[in-house]
Every structure is written in structure tokens, then in C-alpha cells.
Amino acid sequence: MRAAIWNARAALLYSLGGWTMLGAMIHYTYNSNGGGEPENESDPQANQGPRKEVYTRETALGFKVTTIVTYKEVQPPITRLLRRITSFFDPNDGPPSEN
């Protein structure tokens, strides 16, 4: 009898946590600015797009191998949500803002 009650409580807690995380992710997705779009359109740093690095090497048999690595600044919504949550717990040692 006690095991059934404990199992029901654990299932309730587990489902509550899952639905809370899903609801937060949906809320954050709809209230964010759309993913990869820069917030400030006139900022040249924000409009650069993906960054590419090209590596070329030659093998012992004379073949050339080219590797292209592309870095994108697009993050999944859950990563942005987790970073926003952890930013509340990080100490801010900078000077106070004027706003």
C-alpha cells in the first residue's frame, strides 16, 4: 500500500516537472525574437552570418584533403532558456547600469 502511494507521488512529481519544462520551452520559443535573427539590424557585428574556417593538408600519397568548419550562432531554444536561468545565479561583478 505504501509503495503504491509513493509510486503515485513520484509519477505526479515527474509529470509536473516534465510539463513545466515543456511549457517553459514553448513560452520562451514564442516570446524570443525568432532564433537566428539579430536583435539590432544596424549592428555590423550582429549581421556577419556564419563563420567558416578552411583547413587544407596533403597526404603522403599526394592527395589534398580540405576540411571546412562552419560555426553558426544559432542555439536551440532549450539552451537559450537554460543560459537565461543560470544567468540569474551568476554574480554580476560589473558596475551598475545607468538604466
Rank of each mutant, 00 (worst) to 15 (best):
T56D: 04
T56K: 07
T70A: 04
I68S: 12
K64Q: 11
G49A: 10
F63A: 11
Q45C: 05
L61C: 05
V69Q: 13
N47I: 04
P50W: 08
K52G: 02
V74N: 00
T56C: 04
D43I: 05
V69D: 09
R80W: 07
F63H: 12
N47R: 09
P77T: 07
A46P: 00
T79M: 14
G49M: 11
V74E: 11
R51G: 00
G62C: 00
R57S: 09
I78F: 11
T67L: 15
E58F: 08
P76K: 08
E73P: 05
Q48Y: 02
P77A: 14
E41H: 04
Q75N: 12
K52N: 13
S42R: 12
E41Y: 07
Y71S: 09
E58T: 13
S42F: 13
G62L: 06
V54F: 05
T59K: 08
R51C: 04
T56M: 05
E41R: 10
I78E: 15
E53H: 10
V54I: 13
P76T: 09
G49H: 11
K72C: 00
P77W: 01
E73G: 03
K72E: 03
A60F: 09
I78P: 01
E73Y: 02
V54R: 13
T59D: 14
R57E: 09
P44S: 02
Q75H: 05
D43K: 03
A46V: 02
E73Q: 00
G62A: 03
A60K: 11
K72Q: 02
Q75E: 12
P50D: 10
Q75D: 11
K52R: 14
S42H: 13
Y55V: 10
Y55P: 01
N47L: 01
F63N: 12
Y71H: 12
E41K: 10
P50C: 06
E41I: 03
A60D: 12
P76F: 08
R51K: 08
I78L: 15
V65I: 15
N47A: 04
F63W: 09
S42P: 03
R51Q: 07
Q45R: 14
P77G: 10
R51W: 00
A46D: 03
K64H: 10
P77E: 04
I78G: 03
A46G: 03
E53Y: 06
T79K: 15
K64C: 02
A46T: 02
L61H: 05
T56G: 00
Y55R: 11
L61A: 10
N47H: 03
K64P: 04
K52S: 14
T70M: 02
Y71Q: 09
N47S: 03
P50N: 09
E53T: 13
G62V: 02
V54Y: 07
P77K: 01
I78K: 07
V54T: 13
D43R: 05
T66D: 10
V65M: 09
R51F: 04
I68E: 15
K72P: 00
